[in-house]
């Protein structure tokens, strides 16, 4: 698959815009996932993922064929998302909809003494609870944790995507995981 993508990228570099559609559909879920887990909002995530692909297309000539395309693409996506997070004001409102859920608001995230009966809802709630906890992490830990867990990248790949030393990647994973442990241990 990696080779097929390389071929497509060569075509894109030669000016074949249509070949880029295959590249997009191959990576779209991965990129969207990274953006969503970091920004916590489906609409913004879609916007960011789209922007990441457009930037990749515009700058395709600067992509070095000898390197892994996914690493390069993920770097564009994480940089864009981190920039967006920095510009954003903190937006936690208790009555705001929890994105990715249907009609759940932040009140549902508060500890409640009533237990929800249906397992499905519990699972949904767990998912959005974890997402909320990821959102509580500072962005620099968030990006590392998302790449590590959601995309299961190796430490080396993460260090390449984020352009930080591997030692820093390790420290951030440890701290991020510690912080999540404190929040998730009572679940």
């Amino acid at each position: 698959m990696e080779n097929a993508i390389k071929q497509k990228i060569k075509q894109v570099k030669k000016g074949d815009q249509a070949a880029f559609a295959d590249v997009v559909s191959f990576y779209q879920n991965k990129v969207y996932q990274i953006c969503y887990r970091m920004i916590g909002n489906v609409h913004e995530a879609e916007d960011l993922a789209q922007e990441a692909f457009i930037r990749a297309f515009v700058n395709i000539q600067s992509f070095d064929d000898n390197r892994k395309f996914s690493t390069w693409l993920y770097r564009i996506a994480t940089n864009l998302t981190i920039d967006r997070i920095r510009k954003k004001k903190p937006d936690y409102y208790l009555d705001a909809d929890v994105k990715g859920t249907d009609g759940l608001d932040m009140y549902s995230q508060l500890a409640s003494d009533q237990k929800l009966p249906e397992e499905e809802v519990e699972s949904l709630e767990l998912q959005s609870y974890i997402q909320t906890e990821i959102m509580m992490l500072p962005p620099k830990y968030r990006s590392v944790i998302v790449l590590r867990y959601l995309d299961e990248l190796s430490l080396l790949e993460i260090s390449e995507v984020l352009d930080i030393p591997i030692g820093t990647v390790k420290t951030r994973i440890h701290r991020g995981r510690e912080s999540l442990r404190k929040r998730l241990r009572h679940m």
């Binding site: 879920n29 969207y32 996932q33 969503y36 887990r37 489906v42 990715g100 767990l126 998912q127 974890i130 997402q131 944790i145 867990y149 959601l150 999540l180 998730l184 679940m187």
Partner: peptide, 9 residues
Amino acid sequence: YMKSMDQIN
């Protein structure tokens, strides 16, 4: 928990 996160499309 982290690994159980659903892949979203």
